[in-house]
């Protein structure tokens, strides 16, 4: 029995270390999470020992808007999923294209303004990237890159933002990171502004990334702030 007690104590102390933060809590089993949360509850009063500090004015309004935006985004995604199912059925029926298509069709439709699935002008080449934070959901950008004309001379970037906001006094900069290469700026983006002129070539296999930069963008031509969003660029046409 003593062995069993030792083992229980060990398991409990493992959980305690995860609650302290000196051991990672990724990949906890449900049981481990319960044990850790027991410690969370025990230790939480200590967190409150911090002196109170007044948060900035208007923060609750920002939080409130984020929650509204989230509800809105959920609606858009549900609608897009319905359309994606329909399109996927059409695509598979007509050409039997591989399973990866489903994701692409989903992304294409998700980009398109609601109620306008087919773009008015047909680009020669199109790419799409879902640019998201690492890990679980949260804010996201959908970036579509279209080239028009035979030699791709005319390009356009369309950005759809779901709850992406630049931190106060900072700019968000979009980067193209070629496989094995260094980042090239695609410009400072305004998440609420859907169109930005394209000044960089892109290739399928690039990664698009968004970093937080001083106002107006990186002074050095390379990302200087944290990369908050990233995602691979997929060729769709």
């Amino acid at each position: 029995m003593a062995d069993q007690d030792d083992k229980n104590l060990d398991t409990d102390l493992d959980a305690g270390e995860r609650a302290l933060g000196t051991e990672p809590r990724d990949g906890e089993s449900a049981e481990e999470r319960l044990a850790r949360r027991d410690w969370d509850d025990k230790l939480a009063p200590l967190a409150l020992a911090a002196p109170p500090a007044e948060p900035p004015a208007g923060l609750f309004e920002r939080i409130s808007q984020a929650l509204d935006g989230e509800a809105e985004a959920a609606k858009v995604i549900r609608l897009a999923e319905r359309r994606a199912r329909r399109w996927r059925a059409v695509a598979i029926a007509s050409s039997g294209i591989a399973a990866g298509l489903a994701a692409v069709v989903f992304a294409m439709i998700y980009i398109g303004p609601l109620g306008q699935v087919v773009p008015p002008a047909v680009p020669q080449q199109s790419y799409v990237a879902l640019v998201t934070p690492e890990g679980e959901g949260g804010p996201a950008l959908l970036v579509e890159v279209d080239f028009y004309g035979d030699d791709r001379q005319e390009g356009r970037i369309t950005i759809q933002s779901v709850q992406v906001e630049a931190p106060a006094g900072r700019s968000l900069e979009l980067w193209r990171v070629p496989a094995g290469g260094s980042p090239q700026s695609m410009g400072v983006i305004a998440p609420r502004d859907p169109f930005t002129p394209l000044e960089t070539a892109v290739e399928a296999g690039d990664t698009l990334a968004v970093s937080v930069e001083p106002p107006g963008g990186s002074p050095s031509g390379a990302p200087t702030g944290p990369v908050i969003l990233s995602g691979p660029l997929i060729e769709t046409r």
Partner: peptide, 28 residues
């Protein structure tokens, strides 16, 4: 509770900008 909780975030982040972000995420 905002002032109390913002204090918690500030204690750990030690930088107002980061603490604001953490607190906003936490309250959501």
């Amino acid at each position: 509770c905002a002032a109390k909780l913002f204090g918690v975030a500030l204690r750990i982040c030690r930088e107002r900008g980061l603490a604001e972000e953490a607190f906003q995420e936490a309250f959501i």
